[in-house]
Design a protein around this nucleic acid. Structure first.
Length: 571
DNA sequence: GCCGTTTTCGGCCCGACTGTTTTCAGTCG
């Protein structure tokens, strides 16, 4: 039983909250939170890194002390300091801080004065009217606490695609308000994270009050959470929270940096500024009281001698070092993509014909599309057998003969059996232009076996790409256990590639694994796995994720023209 | 508890909003 990064991050998070309630040094608390964030966003388990002799103190925000504590947690499978503090303060206090409006200070007051140690205790105390004599807890607070206890905030992050469906109409609505100069979505939405917890909308205009008023009157608003003169927060009927912020025009760039985040990026940016005697806030860059810049984001970064850093990179994961050295990646963009490497037709579980998919791809300006219907042993989504695959290849030849300047690639998404063998053996797969091999069943192997399974699949020299390598479905199904580093090393040895599946529910590989692939020199194929012509448009979600993984056009195989792609696919 | 191209000590982001108070602490992002 190994401890995974998320659990270690969780332990540090709980510990930080309890320290906060206890009233410990705020910077020590922040150190634990920073460390938790670092650990959570690592591509590999720290337990594995430790085994390989990696010095955890080299990780950002982790020093000798925390490195020791992490090793101890991994060794003993418990966090001694957390258990110690939980003897002084009930663990339930951590959950109380999840109630909106209840932070560490108030939770401590409730514990000290009323012996409240859990949400049940709190509910009883409120109903018994015991909150009344406690300083700082008025009638409104009682109301909101009761309400929160009745409806536990089942806040869930939504997929980026779902967030788009909510954000875009709202942005259009705001743009139509008279006097509006600009409207932009910031936050994790702008950084193109695969899921979004809330929306941050930034508006510039001369007179903020009417804008805030219009915003609160948006028909999708179910509740106004807070509303001032330049700022408001609402919850929409969809459940998503939206924060609006209005700033003057000369602050547009500064505010965009500020509200795009990430938090870690902003903290690092401010630290750099501070060394130069500069102060950064949402209104601009200041020296003392003097405003220096803030109209555009580039202007803000230029104040500390840095080039513009694309939002997708703003995660404090090396972008400042790269920017300083002039090595920021030229991120792959939609216009770089020359074709789609993974689509289905009605021959398996798709909706359209080969011709329809090809026409749709051409309309997108592509030079090629790979028809990769399922090839599987019995049972899975009408997989093709050898006979039907041969027939499909003949049809593709016939269609290609009529096409000019466009090529339909013969392909297949071949199922990988638990032992790593392919659903279809023999020479026929070798006749395809590109073969993607994927796992569709038996997700519960342990990491070693699952990794071995995928590596065995790549031993077949016909295989080019591992499809949706981790099998995760965002918010529905966890990735199967897998040693990604080993898989990537094996792919590199064999001249194989990994897919970045652009389905918004998959986005598999995730951003950190994409970055790992890049660092290890394994090229990536961005593919939509489209089952209809319309969903070829999912490509842009794949590109978003690729950019978050620092991919440049050369790192992506389907940025190449047909001839170069085919050459790359020879093994 | 972390960190260092001003520092191995002395810093560590900061402004808006709410509720409760009567000038501000706490929370949030």
């Amino acid at each position: 039983m190994t401890i995974h990064n998320a659990e270690i991050a969780g332990l540090f998070g709980r510990y930080a909250t309890l320290l906060e309630i206890k009233g410990a040094n705020p910077f020590r608390i922040r150190a634990y939170r920073n460390a938790a964030r670092t650990i959570e966003s690592l591509p590999r388990d720290v337990s594995v890194m430790l085994q390989e002799g990696y010095d955890l103190a080299e990780l950002p925000g982790i020093g000798d002390d925390l490195a020791d504590k992490i090793s101890n947690i991994i060794e003993r499978e418990k966090f001694f300091e957390l258990e110690k503090i939980e003897k002084q303060m009930p663990a339930g206090l951590v959950d109380l801080t999840a109630i909106p409006g209840l932070g560490p200070k108030r939770v401590k007051t409730l514990f000290d004065k009323l012996k409240v140690r859990s949400s049940e205790d709190l509910a009883k105390a409120v109903r018994a009217g015991r909150l009344k004599g406690v300083r700082g807890f008025g009638p409104k607070f009682e109301q909101s606490i009761l309400k929160a206890l009745g409806h536990p905030a089942a806040e869930k992050r939504v997929s980026l695609a779902a967030a788009e469906h909510i954000a875009e109409p709202l942005i259009q609505y705001l743009k139509a308000i008279p006097g509006i100069e600009s409207v932009a979505a910031a936050g994790s939405y702008r950084r193109r994270r695969e899921t979004v917890g809330d929306l941050d909308i930034l508006v510039t205009c001369q007179h903020p009050e009417p804008v805030v008023e219009h915003f609160a009157a948006y028909e999708e608003v179910s509740k106004t959470l807070a509303r001032g003169t330049t700022k408001a927060s609402v919850r929409l009927k969809s459940g998503l929270q939206v924060d609006l912020r209005v700033v003057p025009r000369r602050s547009a760039g500064a505010a965009l940096v500020y509200f795009t985040g990430s938090k870690a990026h902003n903290i690092a940016l401010r630290a750099i500024g501070r060394k130069r005697g500069l102060k950064f806030n949402e209104y601009g860059v200041f020296r003392g009281k003097r405003w220096l810049a803030g109209r555009t984001e580039a202007e803000v970064y230029a104040q500390v001698g840095l080039p513009y850093i694309p939002p997708e990179l703003r995660e404090a994961q090396g972008e400042f070092e790269a920017a300083r050295a002039g090595h920021l990646p030229r991120l792959v963009a939609a216009t770089d993509i020359k074709g789609d490497l993974h689509v289905h037709t009605e021959a398996s579980d798709g909706d359209a014909t080969i011709r329809e998919m090809a026409d749709a791809a051409r309309a997108l300006g592509y030079a090629y599309i790979a028809i990769s219907d399922h090839v599987s042993r019995i049972g899975i989504v009408h997989g093709l057998d050898a006979k039907r695959l041969v027939r499909q290849m003949t049809e593709i030849d016939r269609l290609n003969a009529k096409l000019q300047g466009f090529r339909i690639l013969k392909s297949a998404e071949v199922d990988i059996a638990p032992n790593g063998s392919l659903a279809l053996d023999g020479g026929i797969l070798a006749e395809l232009d590109v073969v993607t091999a994927s796992v569709h069943a038996k997700f519960d192997l342990d990491a070693a076996a699952q990794t071995e399974r995928l590596i065995r699949a790549m031993d077949h020299t016909c295989v080019n790409i591992i499809g949706h390598p981790t099998g995760r479905l965002i918010g529905e199904r966890e990735a199967y256990p897998l040693d990604m580093k080993r898989l990537l090393a094996a792919a590199k040895e064999r001249g194989c590639f990994v897919e970045l599946n652009a389905q918004p529910t998959r986005l598999d590989l995730c951003d950190v694994h994409v970055r790992l692939a890049k660092d290890m020199g394994v090229r990536v194929g961005i593919a939509t796995d489209a089952h209809s012509p319309a969903t070829l448009a999912y490509m842009r979600y794949g590109i978003d994720q690729a950019r978050r993984g620092w991919l440049e056009p050369d790192d992506v195989i389907n940025t190449r023209p047909l001839s170069a792609l085919l050459k790359l696919l020879e093994r």
